[in-house]
């Protein structure tokens, strides 16, 4: 009996003297593994054209129907993507998404992938519908901003219009909402009025696979 007790006590003492494995989130961040399936990223070609051609194969492949793609014809003089069409709207309901990665598998141009970002909790359901603006890879200067803060979360969203580096889409959404006035904050009824026009609400989910 004494031998076992001594063995146990020695073990716990050894544990006590070794370094704790606690990661003090959010001050300390753990980089996501390379193939982490976090929030989606819409990619661009090196020349800045969007890879997405608006074919809606991702929406068709999605098992939960959380992707909405609204495609439009490209203006040949000023193309958004190399194809005939591009995604005018691209929205993903992150509350419904199961992060299976089928959209990435279905994509013929590798326009959508699942990224490293994982801090996706929010207080407002409306904010959890990621818009094209949230998802689209920044360009140019993406590499540079990644070097500024390589810790994964939000790294795919640097230098979007009107945002300081490191500001998350959520903060940007709050800024947009704040333009309506303080009364809008926190109350769902008032908040819906304050939504930017391109932010879909939960009450009217995007139709799946139109046409």
């Amino acid at each position: 009996m004494f031998k076992e007790i001594a063995k146990g006590m020695a073990f716990t003492l050894k544990q006590m003297l070794s370094k704790p494995i606690t990661l003090q989130w959010p001050e300390e961040q753990k980089p996501s593994p390379p193939r982490h399936r976090g929030r989606h990223i819409l990619h661009r070609y090196d020349n800045g054209l969007e890879k997405c051609i608006g074919c809606e194969l991702c929406a068709a492949a999605c098992p939960v129907g959380c992707i909405y793609v609204g495609s439009a014809e490209n203006d040949p003089a000023h193309p958004v993507s190399p194809g005939e069409r591009y995604a005018e709207r691209y929205e993903i309901n992150l509350m419904r998404c199961i992060y299976c990665g089928y959209c990435a598998e279905a994509c013929p141009t590798e326009a959508i992938t699942l990224g490293p970002r994982y801090e996706l909790a929010d207080y407002r359901r409306e904010r959890l519908v990621a818009t094209k603006e949230d998802l689209l890879e920044a360009w140019p200067g993406f590499e540079k901003s990644l070097a500024d803060n390589p810790r994964g979360a939000g790294a795919d969203q640097r230098e979007q219009a009107g945002r300081a580096p490191g500001v998350s889409p959520r903060v940007a959404w709050e800024d947009r909402e704040g333009a309506v006035g303080q009364a809008g904050r926190g109350s769902p009824a008032a908040g819906q009025e304050g939504l930017a026009p391109h932010v879909p609400t939960v009450a009217t989910p995007p139709k799946r696979n139109p046409g």
Partner: peptide
């Protein structure tokens, strides 16, 4: 604190 460090926590 003691329990935390025994369990490799902080």
């Amino acid at each position: 604190k003691v329990s935390a460090h025994i369990q490799l926590r902080i």
